[in-house]
């Protein structure tokens, strides 16, 4: 196995600090970061699954939002053998590379996006009756797959979209792409819930109407979700409803 030397240039609260580590040429940035933490146990960062399921290891790697666990070192290392690592933007900073997700998660909780696996609903062979039986949700009214059905339920809540969004950088109260897109998703399948309460959460100057369509959220999403499209579709939906009423 071939090993390479990597210099991790890491933001540490008030200053940049360099860690030189040896990792496999096939290693991912998270592997290099774990090697760096062996040198300094006080280095703060979050990770869990190592395969882009948990969304814990989101970082700004060389200035772009990525998941450290699926970003190969060889793809981001520069000619000087260096990789720049920063915490996600637009989140309260706990320390080093660790940010506080609590406000973000609380917003998503309020919207109450039902979590389902894409395989359960995206497949044409889906058996709705068996789904209801297995999950004991007889009252659920799961519609046929609509043409506009996207992969929003695949959101891994990694926060990369919030970090990349320039609006989130200018308005601390902004709901953020993940939250707004979740509202759009809930509206497309409300399951007998009153959608007005959910719409009220985002139909204001810090919510839906604050988005300036920079599309950075969709560009950085590691799960293939397209929050920008969902936000703009939601905006059209609310506009149409307002005109009708």
């Amino acid at each position: 196995m071939k090993f390479i030397s990597v210099r991790l240039h890491i933001w540490r609260n008030t200053h940049w600090e360099d860690f030189t580590v040896q990792v496999s040429s096939e290693a991912y940035v998270l592997d290099a970061l774990e090697a760096a933490s062996e040198q300094d146990k006080s280095l703060l960062f979050r990770h869990a699954c190592h395969h882009a399921s948990c969304g814990s290891c989101g970082l700004r790697i060389n200035g772009r939002e990525r998941l450290a666990c699926i970003t190969p070192v060889k793809d981001v290392i520069n000619t000087l053998g260096m990789i720049r690592l920063e915490p996600l933007r637009n989140f309260p900073l706990i320390g080093d590379l660790l940010v506080d997700f609590k406000p973000f998660m609380q917003q998503l909780d309020r919207i109450d996006l039902p979590l389902r696996r894409s395989a359960e609903l995206l497949s044409k062979e889906i058996n709705i009756d068996s789904f209801k039986r297995v999950f004991n949700k007889a009252a659920l009214d799961i519609p046929e797959i609509s043409p506009g059905f996207n992969r929003l339920e695949n959101c891994i809540e990694c926060g990369l979209c919030v970090s990349a969004c320039p609006i989130a950088g200018t308005d601390i109260l902004y709901s953020g792409p993940a939250c707004l897109a979740a509202v759009g998703r809930v509206l497309s399948e409300p399951r007998h819930r009153s959608v007005m309460d959910i719409i009220e959460l985002v139909d204001n100057e810090h919510g839906l109407w604050r988005c300036h369509a920079a599309f950075e959220c969709s560009e950085v999403c590691p799960a293939g979700v397209d929050p920008a499209r969902e936000i703009l579709a939601l905006r059209s939906h609310i506009l149409r409803n307002n005109f009708k009423s």
Partner: peptide, 22 residues
């Protein structure tokens, strides 16, 4: 807690930030 935020950042790809910035 402190937040690290910025809306002024130059990169051509993706161009969303550039469009917003200009």
């Amino acid at each position: 807690m402190k937040r690290r935020s910025r809306w002024f950042e130059f990169h051509l790809h993706p161009a969303g930030m550039l469009a917003f910035m200009i």
